[in-house]
Design a protein around this nucleic acid. Sequence first.
DNA 1: TTTAAGATTTAGTCATGCCTAAACTTATAG
DNA 2: CTATAAGTTTAGGCATGACTAAATCTTAAA
Lengths: 252, 252
Amino acid sequence: MPPRNHGPYTTESVDDYLKAILELGGLAEERVTSNALAQHLGVRAASVTGMLQKLAAQKPPFVKYEKHHGVRLTAAGKMRALEVLRHHRLLERFLHDFLDYSWDEVHDEAERLEHFISEQLEDRIAAKLGDPETDPHGHLIPERSGALPAREEVLLSKWACGVAAVISSVSDRDPAALREMTRLGLKPGVAITVETGTRNASLRVRIGERSDSVRLSQMLASGISVIAGPNGRARNLLADSHEANQAESRLP
Amino acid sequence: MPPRNHGPYTTESVDDYLKAILELGGLAEERVTSNALAQHLGVRAASVTGMLQKLAAQKPPFVKYEKHHGVRLTAAGKMRALEVLRHHRLLERFLHDFLDYSWDEVHDEAERLEHFISEQLEDRIAAKLGDPETDPHGHLIPERSGALPAREEVLLSKWACGVAAVISSVSDRDPAALREMTRLGLKPGVAITVETGTRNASLRVRIGERSDSVRLSQMLASGISVIAGPNGRARNLLADSHEANQAESRLP
DNA sequence: TTTAAGATTTAGTCATGCCTAAACTTATAG
DNA sequence: CTATAAGTTTAGGCATGACTAAATCTTAAA
Ligand SMILES: [Mn+2]
Ligand SMILES: [Mn+2]
Ligand SMILES: [Mn+2]
Ligand SMILES: [Mn+2]
């Protein structure tokens, strides 16, 4: 049931592939491999190849595909991916703010509905919310135009010990992890500092105004992204300086 | 993407077939022919046969199907049809009351989304609306249990001339017709009386408190259902006494 | 440079749902 | 009691989007 918006019609599957390519390729538009897509989408690599060939072959192609070397989105493909991402995040914000969903419940519902709401409903929801900038997990909501400001976010596990940071966003994929974060007071906007010398299976952190510290599992820490803290320390003092910029905020 | 609720999983197509059977068979559960379904769903009769055979064959069957003699819903099929109908009408009420949709815009959006909202979202929407009894067009919303009170509604075109009536519901299928009704002040709850002796291509009616009368096209009149008016006249004084009870309120 | 492991693509299937054309029932008029 | 029209089902296909198994590239180690 395609007739949903204006542009080239897309199916739910196509939307999912485009979103996955945007997420895995990052805003930097890097090439994405079939295998990575297969894993992310939960389908076999052979299925991915088939779909990529179709997306690359259609009238206005959604991807540029080079055999054995992965794909990247075309302008049209990126536009549609950002459109779906906007739907997802607006829906999460709406479900959370207007329909009493907790932040660990919004993702699944939004993931399903994002493919089916019309541009009109998107607009009405955005208007009702006052054009919000972020979803309940701190992720930035693309504008109608597709504009999506980049933010120098870094995974907490890559952040330097002892340097004050503020949580910018958290992964919305694991409801149990989100509930655990709620219990610990971890949410976007909260200050956090990693205690020096704790970078093994778990790390100790000081959260918000509290004087005690708690131990975070690597699992939990890997779902938290941060930006420089209020005491304005330099932002590139990263723990593992190499390949530290691959955080990219877990797209959806 | 089935995993939406509890019961036997259904696809969007299956939902549409079940809804169509409920609508065409009426609450009286009459058998529905392949042809009627084909026309209603906009597919070929051969496609209908194929689907009916599948629906009748599955583990807990959704329909009882007798070759060459039409189908009727089983309890499971009726339950799912009413569930989807509840989604549709709740969504219409929600879009209308909370998201500034006009009553001629709600149908298409609801028709698409009804298949994809979770039971949780259904509940939250119902709660937010205070468990409404009708949608913006006056149609009754089935309860969560599937209960749907019957109402002795009759098409305006079958109602006796000169007998006061009240609009109970209007068809939501034609946006242009709905806008025309708005212009004329025709909506659920409004009193209406057909002037005697006007039962041809169009009929003159007196609307609400107004003293003048207007001419309604058969098109418009066929989309309006009424119940006995405030001055309590008998309800079975129907114009065309035979086959007058087939009104059944245009389900979705 | 060679080669094997790993990644990727091709080939051949399958399930859904729809379509057309042809065969077949049922119901109705003579 | 038939013949014919109308309604319905069967047969054979097509498009999507996934899967398995087998073939083919790439790449990196030897
Ligand atoms: Mn999705
Ligand atoms: Mn989110
Ligand atoms: Mn539908
Ligand atoms: Mn309605």
